[in-house]
Design a binder for these strands. Structure first.
Lengths: 212, 212
DNA sequence: GTCTATAGCGCGATAGAC
DNA sequence: GTCTATCGCGCTATAGAC
């Protein structure tokens, strides 16, 4: 605001880097501790910065949390790209399951922060859920309905199909420790995610009449 | 300990009732606020008791949380009853999905407390997950394998089948606010749960080759 | 067995020197 | 833009009268 026209790129670069570092650390800590369980001290330590530095970039803990969430919501909207009327249903759904499962493997913290937010009644993202997300899902549900009308797919409630797909894929990020424990492993490996993806794809595709 | 042989049933009854009231209030508050977000003051208020009374029955917040969790774990183990070799696979699975979905509708708080615990890395129930729960699931997985070997079921990884079933049913308790928002409703009704149960059953049964 | 009043402390946030 | 030192709130837990 005050010195807005000043193009000091050095300082800008430092800011961008520090902000990114803080956001990454915050995502990890919020994921495993939740909002109230997380402490700014732990986030700062993980980011390798002194605590007041955090408050210099994000005035409050709540503001930092919002910033983390906003990143995650943007990610979320991307994943449905493969669901288009022109696509072959089997291909599109397989790719969607794959995308969601990859997201669970590569960005487990993001998934957990979002899950935590939902568990607590989504105080910070209710607007998003009933707004942008609802519109996107309603849109994609129409695609599913078009496929059904064209006889390409067994009848199914499109919305509930999405709920099941989200649950089945995100569970491997959110509840990884349960799955690992039941499988008798310390951590999930990429082999486990492959097997999970195959299982979900097989169940859903055959469940929708898409496999002989 | 000190006056152990005294059969004063009046006091015993008061204790049992208060303990039950506290546990119920605690389950609700832990479910929506998480462990760190929950305050003993709020639990006490919801139970209609003064705060120190809580500490009289449960010495620490952590001990109260453990007690709430123990109740939930007991519930969890019951649900798999229908999975037996003698049963008809389609019947057994439909009943299992039904039981889990009913549990999501009737005991959403229990499901949420458990989900929260898992999200945070299961510090309090890791032993249970790798112990009693793993043994039960391994056991039930053998039943599924027997059905597959007998040609009653399309081949599937039994463990991952369970993971998908848990996810697909519990999501309606844990993430109810997301589902309600996307459906454009304020709260989920029993009609939504019925539709959800039908969708999951249809997908899974057909997915396992159990429907014409 | 119940409850008021308070101890004790961890945490978010800031002041202010560098 | 960075960091030490500290304030003050809100929480768990308890002491002690009833």
């Amino acid at each position: 605001m005050s010195a807005a026209k000043n193009p000091k790129n050095g300082k800008e670069a430092i800011r961008r880097e520090n902000v990114a570092t803080i956001l990454q650390a915050a995502e990890a800590v919020f994921a495993t501790k939740g909002f109230s369980g997380a402490t700014t001290a732990e986030i700062a330590a993980r980011a390798g910065l002194p605590k007041p530095n955090l408050h210099y970039y994000f005035r409050t803990k709540a503001a930092l949390y919002r910033a983390v969430l906003d990143d995650i919501l943007a990610l979320w909207l991307d994943a449905t790209a493969s669901i288009m009327v022109e696509a072959e249903p089997a291909d599109a759904l397989r790719r969607y399951i794959d995308a969601k499962m990859t997201y669970s493997r590569k960005r487990p913290f993001a998934s957990k922060v979002f899950a935590n937010e939902l568990l607590h009644g989504a105080p910070a993202v209710k607007g998003f859920l009933g707004g942008a997300m609802k519109r996107l899902v309603d849109d994609k549900a129409k695609v599913i309905e078009a496929w059904i009308a064209a006889g390409k797919l067994a009848p199914v409630d499109p919305h509930h199909l999405f709920f099941v797909l989200w649950a089945a894929t995100q569970t491997y990020a959110d509840f990884d420790c349960q799955i690992a424990a039941v499988l008798g492993k310390k951590k999930l490996g990429s082999g486990d995610f492959d097997r999970a993806g195959e299982t979900v794809s097989a169940l859903v595709l055959r469940g929708l009449g898409l496999k002989p």
